[in-house]
Amino acid sequence: MTDTEKVVAILNDLTGEDLSNKLDENIFENGLLDSMATVQLLLDLEDKFDVDVPVSEFDRNEWNTPNKIVAKVASLK
């Protein structure tokens, strides 16, 4: 599984929608992810990628699409 597939799997699970063809969709603007789901996302990323994602690392403008999340995870590794 590539990193992108792993991230998309986590996001699909959280949002209940298939995002594999919407890698540049803004997941906050369309209301797919609320604060609670965001926290779950950070915990899942820590779990699956073994990276440390503190809450203050999380800037909504830098984490708002699946592609950006993949890039962020790569930069944290």
Binding site: S35, T38, L42, L43, V55, S56
Partner: peptide
């Protein structure tokens, strides 16, 4: 949201003090 709500839920879920996400 960023300094209280998210930190509180993050810490609660990480420590697994409560399973139910809605309750948290």
């Amino acid at each position: 949201r960023d300094f209280i709500f998210m930190r509180f839920t993050f810490w609660f879920m990480k420590k697994r003090w409560l399973k139910n996400r809605i309750r948290i």
